[in-house]
Amino acid sequence: MTPGIESAYAKRKIAARAATVASSAAVVLALAPLVAIFLHVAVRGVRALSVSFFTEPVGARGAGMANAVFGTIQLVLLASAMGIPLGIAGGLYLSECRHTRLARAVRFCADVLAGVPSILVGVAVYAVVVVRMKQFSAFAGAAALAIVMLPLVVRTTDVLARAVPDSLREAALALGATRWRTAIFVVLRTAAPGIRSGCMLAVARVCGETAPLLFTAYNNRFFNDSLFDPTSTLQVQIFTYTMTPNEDWHAQAWAAALVLVAIVVVLDVLARRLVERKEVA
C-alpha cells in the first residue's frame, strides 16, 4: 500500500471515530431531558406524595387527589372496554380481508385518524356527545380516549396479523377449519402476544392524554356518582395545578405526575418485556 492511500484511510478512520463520537453525543443530548424529567418528577413527586393523596378528594387547598386517581382509572378502563375489542375486530378484518375496498379505505382512515390531534377529538365529542346529553361525563371522556386508542389498536392488529404466514392459514383451511375459526384460533392466536403488547402501549398512551378530556370528562371536586357525571382525572388536575401560584398545588401536581408517569412506564416496560420474552422463547 502506498503511503498516500494509507493516510487517506487513516483520515477516513478518524472521520469514522468522529462520527461515532457525534452520534454518541446525540444520544447523550436525547437522554438528558429524560433523566432530568425523571429526576424532577421522582424527587418532587416523592416529597409531595402521602397517604392522603390517595384517600382524600381534591379540596380547597392541599388535600389529596383520590377522586382524580379513581377518575383516570375509570376512564382508561372504560375507554379500553370500548376501544380494544372494536380495534382488534377491525384490525383482524383488515388483515383477513385485506384486499377488499372497505379494508383499504379503513386502513387509510386509521392512518389519518392516528394523526388527528387529540384536541380535535375533544371538540368533536363535545359537540356530538356532551351537548346532546347536556352533561359533561366520564362516558364522554372515555369515548374520546377510545377514539384516540382505536387507530392504534386497529393498526397493531392489522400489521401483526398480516405478519402471520399464509401457510398457517392454508394449513388450517386444508384441515377443514372455517375462515372465522382460522382467523381467531390460528391468526389471532399466533399474533396474540404482540397484539396484547400493542394494546398495552395504546392504554399507556391514553393514560397521559389530557387535551381530549378538557371539554368531555371535564373536572369534578368530588368523586363522580355515575359515569354520566363530570369526572376528575390526574391529567386535567395536573394541567390545572400547573398554572397556579399555590405551592401546595404545585406539590400535588408533581405527586400526580409521579403517579401518572409510574403507571405509563410500568405499562410500557411490561408491554416490551412480553414481546421480548416471546421472541426469546
Binding site: 379500553s80 372496554a81 380494544i84 375489542p85 382488534i88 381467531i184 389471532l188 392466536r189 396474540a192 402476544p193
Partner: peptide, 14 residues
C-alpha cells in the same frame, strides 16, 4: 404460550 383464547378472555373480562 398465551393464545387467542386467553386474549379473547381478557378482552371479554375487560
Amino acid at each position: 404460550m398465551i393464545g387467542a383464547r386467553r386474549l379473547v378472555a381478557i378482552v371479554g373480562v375487560a
